[in-house]
């Protein structure tokens, strides 16, 4: 658990407290970066930068409730930048950043929600209730994070060109499954 005491200890220079922060949020940062389809090496690079930036920015954040959304926003932005570069877009200067990515209304971020085990289980219960090919697609996507589109499509028995559109439809369907419950809450 990362609370105000943890953050104060980090700001006072306590490496053990920092390690707690890394342990707690590390999987979140990694997942956000990997979801952009980066290789393990590129993902490692982006993750490292995200933590370096947290070290530099933590004195201005302080609130443990805001750290997760700050990490998500920063990791996502760096991942998107690196993707654009690997796609061959010439970037002459990288470090253009918003003044403060914190608190920019990220309560609607699913990856933040699944930091609680309950929400993670609810998400997968929704997946398990889905028809094919969505259920298999999501299971496979989660189980084989390094598989390429060609490989995933092959395993699902669909043409490579169908994978992207199918995944999008399944994601939309999953979102619609998750929303009504929330409207009632």
């Amino acid at each position: 658990m990362v609370d105000q005491h943890t953050i104060e200890a980090v700001l006072a220079g306590d490496q053990d407290a920092w390690d707690v922060v890394v342990k707690h949020f590390g999987p979140l940062v990694w997942s956000v970066v990997r979801a952009h389809g980066l290789s393990a090496a590129d993902a490692s690079d982006v993750v490292q930068g995200t933590w370096l930036r947290l070290v530099e920015s933590l004195p201005g954040i302080r609130d443990p409730e805001r750290i997760s959304s700050w990490l998500c926003t920063t990791a996502r932005r760096e991942a998107a930048l690196l993707l654009r570069r690997t796609r061959g877009e010439q970037l002459t200067a990288e470090p253009v950043e918003p003044a403060d990515p914190v608190g920019a209304g990220h309560s609607a971020d699913p990856v933040l929600a699944v930091l609680t085990a309950d929400e993670g289980r609810r998400l997968w219960r929704a997946v398990e209730s889905m028809d094919e090919p969505c259920r298999s697609l999501f299971r496979l996507m989660a189980a084989a994070p390094d598989a390429g589109v060609h490989q995933l499509a092959g395993r699902l028995g669909m043409p490579t060109g169908s994978y992207g559109p199918t995944r999008r439809r399944c994601l939309d369907r999953l979102r619609s499954l998750l929303v009504p419950q929330e409207a009632a809450s």
């Binding site: 997942s31 990997r34 952009h36 609607a108 699913p110 930091l115 999008r168 929330e182």
Partner: peptide, 26 residues
């Protein structure tokens, strides 16, 4: 947590990240 965590405003990458994170496979 805000109740709209999985709402329609979330982007695909974030939902994929959530699925992977919750699955613990990566």
């Amino acid at each position: 947590r805000a109740p709209s965590s999985f709402g329609s405003s979330s982007d695909d990458e974030s939902l994929i990240a959530a699925l992977r994170l919750a699955s613990g496979h990566d």
